[in-house]
Write a protein that binds this DNA or RNA. Structure first.
Length: 203
DNA sequence: CCCGTGATTTAT
DNA sequence: TAAATCACGGGG
C-alpha cells in the first residue's frame, strides 16, 4: 500500500459539508500495537455547530465531552454513548466554530484479520465497519484518541487515496441517522455516502 | 420490534 | 444528588 502524507490542516479547515464530501473515498488509517488497519471512508455525516439541533454543540453548549469540537479542524472528536459504543468524528472548520464530521462507514482495505478479532460476530467484510460504532471497534478507537491531531503522523490519520474528489453524481445526500429528535434538522440532507457502495451502514 | 449499558448532561 | 438522555448494534 502506497504511503502518502496525512491530509493537511487546510483540508479540514473548511465547512463541515465540504469536508464530509471530500472525505469520501479517502483512507482512514489506524496504527497501534495491535497492528495497522485501514479503510476507505464511504459514509459521513456533517454536524453544523451551534445552530444544528442534532449537534452536541447546539445552542453553544460547551461541556467537557464536546471540548474537542470547539478546537481547530483536523482533530479527532471521540465520544462514548449508549453505555457501550464509541463514535469517531473529525473536527472541521477553525477553532471556535464547533463543526464536525461523523465517520459512519468504511470499506475495509487493510488489516482485516485484526478487524475480525475485534469485531467478534462479524461474518462478512461488510459487517466490519458498516456503522459508526462498528468502525470505532474495528479500528480500536476510544476516548484516548479524543483530541488527537490527525494531521500529524500519529496513531490515526486520513491519507489521500485519490487526487480528485469523488464526482458529485457519485455521492448520495440523505437525512442523518438516529437524530429524529432534532426537528427540522432531522430532515436536512447532511448524510453523504458513495452511490451503490456495499459497505455503507444499514437501516 | 426491543433493549442493554453507563457516561454525560440537565434538572432539582 | 437524581433522573433523563443518547450521532448504536444485535437479536427476535
Amino acid at each position: 500500500m502506497a504511503r502518502t502524507a496525512p491530509l493537511s490542516r487546510r483540508f479540514y479547515r473548511r465547512d463541515a459539508v465540504t469536508v464530509a464530501r471530500a472525505l469520501l473515498g479517502q483512507r482512514l488509517v489506524r496504527v497501534c500495537h495491535g497492528g495497522r488497519v485501514a479503510g476507505i471512508i464511504v459514509e459521513t455525516e456533517a454536524y453544523l455547530g451551534v445552530a444544528d439541533k442534532a449537534a452536541h454543540t447546539c445552542n453553544g453548549r460547551r461541556t467537557p465531552r464536546n471540548k474537542s469540537m470547539w478546537g481547530d479542524g483536523g482533530h479527532a472528536y471521540v465520544y462514548f454513548t449508549y453505555g457501550l459504543h464509541h463514535c469517531a468524528n473529525i473536527v472541521a472548520g477553525r477553532a471556535g466554530d464547533p463543526v464536525a464530521v461523523l465517520l459512519r462507514a468504511l470499506e475495509p482495505v487493510e488489516g482485516l484479520d485484526i478487524m475480525y478479532t475485534r469485531r467478534t460476530g462479524a461474518r462478512r467484510d461488510r459487517d466490519l465497519c458498516s456503522g459508526p460504532a462498528k468502525l470505532a471497534k474495528a479500528l480500536a478507537i476510544d476516548r484516548e484518541l479524543d483530541g488527537l491531531d490527525l494531521t500529524g503522523d500519529a496513531a490515526m490519520y486520513v491519507e489521500r487515496a485519490r487526487r480528485r474528489p469523488v464526482p458529485a453524481d457519485q455521492i448520495i445526500a440523505a437525512p442523518r441517522i438516529g437524530i429524529d429528535y432534532a426537528g427540522v434538522w432531522a430532515h436536512r440532507r447532511l448524510r453523504f455516502y458513495l452511490r451503490d457502495n456495499p459497505y455503507i451502514s444499514r437501516r
